[in-house]
């Protein structure tokens, strides 16, 4: 495999990792706020805080890793996306900043402020919506280069059904992934009241997820036929994705094996995400950036891959330690530590 293919595969894996951990985090923020509004916060907020407190910073690093890596492996992305994304990118940064810092303020500083809780819940939905714009842009047609200047065509973007369907998909997926995770976490904590509540959320958000996915897929077909056809050639991956969704639903309904249910949801998104990514090949930004032409110099590419492997050797054991202490230590989860 050439270094640029390794590079994009690694980056896509990291984006997938961010999709999962950030969804859990974003969705939890929304549920925490929703529970407060519906006066059920005493049931689940302790559970949410116990999981999120130790890991929120790690979530953010996944994202930083992705955008630093993309610019590193494919410097042209800085030129096109950087120039076009100034406004949506800045708004995304501000939302992320509000969320990250307010989380710390709320959790370690002043407890139970309504304003913080609201911001924490609202940003949980707005951030995925604004980040998903980058995926829409990559389909081409919105970023144009004329006379050496790169601009973003806002009117087209805001009137495109594709962009709205992707936003919708992002938001409901966040809620679905998060609810399934919390179901699993509540069952580990043997917290029956919380379990009942979040299992309800998970079941509720499953149907909109599959509908939004289909809608986005149909609009993708209208906007970028090449990408749509490529994905159709990967029908087996899409099939596996739907299959894992079914398994997750069955387990949730049956009220058993919640860990397995969450893993199925992860696999559901893994296959869909990779079918989408592979179908995108060879473009990073249709039609300006392709993986082959925009890759960095070979010596840099190889250095990055080496550092990446060395970094993983360092990080994977540390991450396992983190998970052992906070995710799989039954006493901690139950609040005894």
């Amino acid at each position: 495999m050439s270094y640029e293919i390794i590079g994009i595969t690694v980056l896509w894996l990291f984006l997938y990792g961010y999709l999962i951990v950030a969804s859990v985090d974003f969705g939890a923020g929304f549920f925490a706020y929703y529970a407060k509004v519906t006066k059920k916060d005493h049931i689940i907020n302790r559970l949410i805080a116990r999981y999120l407190s130790p890991v929120w910073e790690v979530t953010n690093v996944f994202f930083v890793f992705f955008f630093v890596g993309v610019v590193g492996f494919f410097p042209d992305t800085a030129y096109y996306y950087g120039a076009a994304l100034l406004v949506p990118g800045s708004i995304g940064i501000i939302l992320l900043a509000i969320r990250g810092s307010f989380y710390a303020f709320e959790n370690y500083g002043s407890k139970n402020s309504n304003v913080y809780m609201f911001l924490y819940g609202a940003t949980g939905l707005f951030i995925p919506a604004s980040l998903s714009v980058a995926l829409t842009l990559s389909e081409g047609g919105f970023i144009v280069e004329e006379g050496g200047a790169v601009t973003l065509n806002y009117l087209d973007l805001f009137t495109s059904p594709l962009s709205w369907s992707i936003v919708g998909l992002a938001v409901v997926s966040v809620l679905f992934i998060s609810a399934t995770f919390l179901t699993f976490y509540a069952s580990r904590a043997n917290d029956h009241a919380a379990l009942k509540l979040v299992r309800g959320y998970a079941l509720f958000w499953s149907t909109p997820t599959i509908i939004a996915a289909l809608t986005a897929f149909i609009f993708l077909g209208q906007h970028n036929e090449r990408h749509f056809n490529n994905m159709m050639d990967l029908w087996w991956m899409l099939g596996l994705s739907v299959g894992f969704f079914m398994i997750a639903m069955l387990l949730l309904y049956a009220g058993k094996y919640y860990g397995l249910a969450f893993i199925s949801v992860m696999l559901q998104f893994l296959f869909a995400f990779f079918a989408y990514g592979i179908g995108h090949y060879p473009f990073i930004l249709d039609p300006y950036i392709t993986i082959q032409h925009s890759a960095t110099h070979e010596s840099m590419g190889i250095a990055l891959v080496i550092v990446f492997i060395a970094g993983l050797l360092l990080l994977v054991p540390s991450l396992i330690l983190l998970m052992k202490l906070f995710l799989f230590d039954a006493d901690y989860v139950r609040g005894k530590k």
Partner: peptide
């Protein structure tokens, strides 16, 4: 300069994990 920027993120990652613990 992609290499040091990339390595910086790993350093953060490492720090963030152990700080959490």
């Amino acid at each position: 300069i992609a290499l040091p920027l990339f390595m910086e993120v790993f350093a953060f990652f490492f720090e963030a994990i152990f700080l959490g613990i």
